[in-house]
Design a protein around this nucleic acid. Structure first.
Lengths: 239, 239
DNA sequence: CGGTAGTTTGAGTAATTTCAAGACAAGTGG
DNA sequence: CCACTTGTCTTGAAATTACTCAAACTACCG
């Protein structure tokens, strides 16, 4: 009991019944090396993942080689919810990843017998949907520099909210575990454009780089003006 | 009982308990004129809507006048699920709209006491999320003509799936109840580009227009080649 | 120390946007 | 019934943005 790990276990800590017990007894910790796939597209998603550490890119690949990254996920985030047995997305480990995987059927049964957990789960799903909506706005309406600024705020917010040890304060130091190509495929741009946007933000002294995989926000207001969501999420107090 | 209407009622037809009874006793049919808002952004979402007829645009507005339409919704679709009391989106009636509205608290209680309905509801939420992912791919990776082709398939599929009288076969006749500006704001393009893309599809005899608010697909294969999702959703058999 | 993968920068090109004008349809009032 | 207004849609030309192609730079790894 006390050794149940992960965000799902935390969400379920106040619930107990045979289905919950069964669910957690079925949970297996798995490790993925950088580059490995947690889920392959089209494959039957038998498993649901609760990430413990590392970063995963969830992507949709077109036949002609185009790729759209739908989200970057880290500790305390979930992966594998689908409306059908198949799953059209590809989940790839960008770093070494630890996750607990649960059989989908066991999760389904636990949710069906534990309405309280199902409610929390519904909130999680809804948040994911709202985050997709943010993403759609960003890709559909913003320019390259704005998209990159918005991306930095997205990472900053996620790195605070989904820190391994639980939610913490936002930091001005942003970790960029993904490559420029990953960022480009997330934002609907090319590597070169992403790189130029970073250079441009650096030149206006809004950010600074130590190495190419982590940066510091020097002028948060500038970044917010470019990529912020205050417009429509003031009440949520993000960024 | 037999007069419960709407998709939610249909989903709940096999369930019965006091909370379900209460939920449906609280449902009120409302009519909205073209141009009216069902939900205003930032407002507390006290209500959840089950659409009966008409078309609604769900949009996110930027302060500087930019607007991104997140989805077009019609009969048998739901509106108003949010993870917080506020709601960052604006729902506008594009035609006259009929809907049943339920207090969110009543829905929440009904779901909390009716796990079977909660499961179905979770599937609906997941489908919405998957549809958002399609949208992200389209906006992030496709060219203007491809986006418009993809949009036609999106409408065709929705108009079959969410027909007023229930799911029906897909038709080659596509209804376009929204303006070119709405389409542009949905696809992350300008009106002019959308118009040029339609002209281009017309010139290649992939589609034909009767008037500017309805078109016929003349060469479905061509449209699928441009905007199809066979790549990653072959197993779902869409489009 | 060279090799490889990833990143940055530059120059030219292609696509979409912007600006501007014209076409079309529906509705209004003379 | 016709001119006129209005809103929407289409088309054209110019400007801008992001993309493509190419080369140089950097860091890491064997």
């Amino acid at each position: 009991m006390s050794e149940r790990r992960g965000h799902l276990a935390e969400m379920a800590k106040n619930f107990d019944n045979p289905e919950i017990k069964f669910l957690f007894s079925e949970g297996r910790e798995r490790h993925f090396k950088m580059g490995e796939h947690l889920i392959t597209e089209g494959q039957a998603t038998d498993y649901f993942y609760d990430l413990l550490s590392g970063t995963v890119a969830l992507a949709r690949n077109g036949r002609d080689g185009r790729r759209q990254i739908l989200s970057f996920m880290g500790a305390r985030q979930f992966l594998g919810a689908a409306s059908t047995p198949g799953y059209p997305n590809l989940a790839t480990a960008l770093t070494d990843v630890k996750a607990i995987c649960y059989p989908r059927a066991a999760l389904e049964r636990a949710l069906a017998t534990t309405p309280g957990l199902a409610s929390e789960f519904r909130v999680v799903l809804t948040r994911i949907l709202e985050s997709s909506h943010d993403h759609i706005y960003t890709i559909g309406q913003r320019s390259a520099v704005e998209r990159v600024a918005s991306f930095l705020l997205y990472l900053r917010s996620n790195q605070a909210r989904f820190a391994v040890e639980g939610p913490r304060e936002k930091s001005e130091l942003i970790d960029l575990p993904m490559t420029r190509l990953d960022i480009a495929d997330f934002l609907g741009l090319t590597i070169e454009t992403v790189s130029r946007a970073f250079s441009s933000l650096k030149k206006m002294e809004a950010i600074g780089f130590t190495d190419s995989h982590s940066c510091t926000i020097l002028n948060i207001q500038r970044i917010r003006d470019l990529g912020g969501r205050e417009d429509f999420t003031a009440h949520r107090g993000s960024n």
